[in-house]
Design a protein around this nucleic acid. Structure first.
Lengths: 339, 339
DNA sequence: ATGAAAGCGCTAACAA
DNA sequence: TTGTTAGCGCTTTCAT
C-alpha cells in the first residue's frame, strides 16, 4: 500500500506541454518551438503561448527533453577531491561558465571511492552527459576509449594526458617549476628538493620531474625527489628527512604538505626562510594564511576551470577550436617563505 | 552540413534494450527486469540476458529510465561556495553516501551568481531530481513552496530553516557557542565578541546570536557583535576595531576571518592567546595550519553531510524517519589560540 | 515467468 | 507559420 509514494510520483509533473498546447489552442510542436526560442512562430502565437505557460506555470521536463533531443545540458565533472582547494577553485570557474551556458554539473569524485574511475565514467555516460571536464591525475585507456566510443567531448582542466587525446587547459609546468627552482637558487639555497604526490601522475611524470631533473643536472646538484606526499601530516613528517639531508630549498606541489613542512621546521626551532626556503605550486587560502606566507606559483585556477568549460561548450556544439591545448600564464609570487 | 554533429549524436547510443531483447530472444520487458534486478525471471533466462548484455556491452540509458520510471537517481546539492572548506567537507560526506546509494549529484552553487536561488532550484526541479540537499543560509518561501508543490524531499545539512519545514542535520549551535564563550571566560577573557557573516542567516539569527546575547547578559558583559565578516581580509581589517574596543576574546563563525584576525593581531605586535583569544566555529585545514592553531568547535562536517544524505535516501523511498531533525555531537578542541 | 502494448513528455522531421 | 506524427529508450501494467 504505497499510495503515498504513488501520489508523490504522480504529481511530480502536473502540467505538461500538452496542457499548454490545448489551452493555447496550438500544437505541441508550436509550444515546443516557443519554449526553445525557435523563430518560426508568429509573434501573436508566441505571446499567447507564453501567456498560457505563465498562467499554468508550465515547466518543461528536462528529462523528456533530454530523451527526445539527445542533449541533456549536463556535463560531468571528474574531480579527485573537492576538499582540496586546488580542485575547489577549478570547479568554481567551471561552475560559473557552465551556469552561463545553461549547463548543469554532475559531480563525480574519484578518490578513496567505492567505485573505480571507469565505473564513475560509465555512470556519467549512462546519464548521457553532453561532455566531461576531467581533473584527476591520469586518464585510463579504458576511460579514454569509452569517451571516444560515445563521442563525448572531454576537456582536461589543470591536468594533462600522457597522449594527445583530449583538449586541455593548463599552465606551463616545466617553465613554472624551473623558474621556481631558479628563484630558490638565486635566494641562496644550495640543496634543492622536489616534493610531490603521485609520481606517476602525468603532470608530474612528464613535466615537474623532468623539469627538476634537468635543472639539477644543469646546475650540478644532487637529486632529491620525495613522492607520495599528500597531506599536512605527510609534509610535517617529511621535514625530518629534508633536514637530515641538509636540504634548504624545496618546491612542493601541494599546499597542505607545504604547510606541514613549514610548521615542522618552525617547531624544530629553525627559521623559514633562513634555514629552509619553500615554494608551493599553487596559491590557495592555505598559502595565504600561514606565517610566513608561502611563496608560490600562482596558477589562475579559476580561469583554468572557466576556460576549460568554455572550451567544452565549443566542443559540445561542434564549434571549431582555435587551439586544442590552452596554456595560461602564471605568476611567481614571492612571500615570506623565500628570502 | 552538420554531418559530424549528426554522426556524434546518432552514435551516442548504439545498443539499446531492444537489441538485447532480440539477441537474447526475449521481450524488452524481460531485459528490463533483469537490468533492474526484478526477481520474476527464470534463472536461465536471466543468465542468457546477462550474457547478451555483456556481449553487446549494453548500457542502459539513464535518461530514458528516468522518463519512464519518473526516478532519475540524481539529487540536487545547493551549496553557497565550494571553495569554502566547510561546505566542501559537508559535500564530501554527502557525495560518499550518495555514491553508496547509487545517486548522482547535480551541483548548484548559489552565491555571487548570475541566477537567483529560485531559478537554480527551479532548474533542479526541471531536471527531475529525486531530492535535494540544501546547505545555503536561508531558504526562501518561494523555494520551499516549489519543493512542496513538486513533492521533492529536502534535507538541510549544516544549516537550519526558520520554520520547521524540512528535515535537517546539525549540531546544537546554541550549546556549542555557549560552551565556547564559557571557555573564553574561564581562560580569562574579559570582553567577548561574536563575529559572523550574514546576521540574517537562520543559523545566526536563531542560534548563535541568541546564545551570545544570553551569555553576555547572564554574565553582565557588553555586547560586541560584528557581522558581514566573510573573508580573510574582512577578518584582518576587523582587528583594528576589536583592538580598539579592548576585546580580548572572540568567537568567529568562519575559519578564514579567524585566520585574518589572528594574523592581524600578530602583525600588530600582539600575542595570541596572551592578548587576544580566538575560537572558531568549525575545524578545517585552515584552523589546523595557522600558528597558533585555532581552538575550535569541531563539527562533524563529513558526518553531517553523510547523515543528511542518508536521511534523504529514506525520504526518497518513503521510508519512515526516526527523527526529522538530527543533532550530532561536536567537540570543543583547544589549541593555541586560547590559553 | 514472460510478452504485448501503452505510455513517460518532449523534439524534430515532414507536410501542409 | 503551424500541425501531424514518429520516435527517443525505457518501465510498467495487464494478460497469458
Amino acid at each position: 500500500m504505497n499510495s503515498l509514494k504513488e501520489e508523490r510520483i504522480m504529481q511530480k509533473q502536473d502540467v505538461t506541454i500538452y496542457d499548454v498546447a490545448r489551452e493555447a489552442k496550438v500544437s505541441m510542436a508550436t509550444v515546443s518551438r516557443v519554449v526553445n526560442g525557435n523563430n518560426n512562430v508568429r509573434k501573436e502565437t508566441r505571446e499567447r503561448v507564453l501567456k498560457v505557460i505563465k498562467e499554468l506555470n508550465y515547466q518543461p521536463n528536462a528529462v523528456a527533453q533530454g530523451l527526445a533531443s539527445k542533449r541533456t545540458t549536463t556535463v560531468g565533472l571528474i574531480v579527485p577531491d573537492l576538499t582540496n582547494l586546488y580542485f575547489a577553485e577549478l570547479s568554481k570557474g567551471i561552475d560559473d561558465i557552465a551556469t552561463l551556458y545553461k549547463y548543469n554539473i554532475i559531480l563525480s569524485s574519484v578518490e578513496n571511492k567505492l567505485l573505480k574511475e571507469n565505473e564513475v565514467i560509465q555512470n556519467l555516460l549512462n546519464k548521457q552527459v553532453d561532455g566531461v571536464i576531467y581533473m584527476a591525475d591520469r586518464l585510463s585507456d579504458d576511460a579514454a576509449e569509452a569517451f571516444d566510443r560515445t563521442k563525448t567531448p572531454v576537456v582536461l582542466a589543470g591536468t594533462i594526458d600522457g597522449r594527445d587525446r583530449f583538449a586541455s587547459v593548463n599552465i606551463d609546468y616545466q617553465k613554472s617549476d624551473t623558474e621556481a627552482l631558479q628563484l630558490l637558487l638565486e635566494k641562496g639555497a644550495k640543496k634543492l628538493a622536489l616534493v610531490l604526490g603521485d609520481k606517476d601522475a602525468a603532470i608530474n611524470k612528464e613535466n615537474r620531474i623532468l623539469a627538476y631533473k634537468n635543472f639539477v643536472k644543469q646546475h650540478g646538484l644532487t637529486e632529491h625527489i620525495f613522492d607520495s606526499v599528500y597531506t599536512y601530516e605527510d609534509g610535517y613528517e617529511l621535514y625530518q628527512k629534508i633536514a637530515s639531508y641538509g636540504i634548504d630549498g624545496v618546491l612542493v606541489t601541494k599546499n597542505l604538505p607545504t604547510a606541514g613542512l613549514l610548521n615542522a621546521c618552525l617547531d624544530d626551532g629553525k627559521k623559514v626562510p633562513d634555514d629552509l626556503q619553500l615554494i608551493t605550486s599553487s596559491e590557495t587560502d592555505i598559502s595565504q594564511v600561514v606565517r610566513p606566507g608561502l611563496t608560490n606559483i600562482k596558477q589562475p585556477l579559476y580561469d583554468i576551470g572557466a576556460v576549460a568549460m568554455r572550451l567544452l561548450t565549443k566542443l559540445m556544439s561542434d564549434e571549431p577550436l582555435d587551439e586544442k591545448h590552452i596554456v595560461l600564464p602564471y605568476e611567481l609570487i614571492e612571500k615570506g617563505s623565500t628570502k
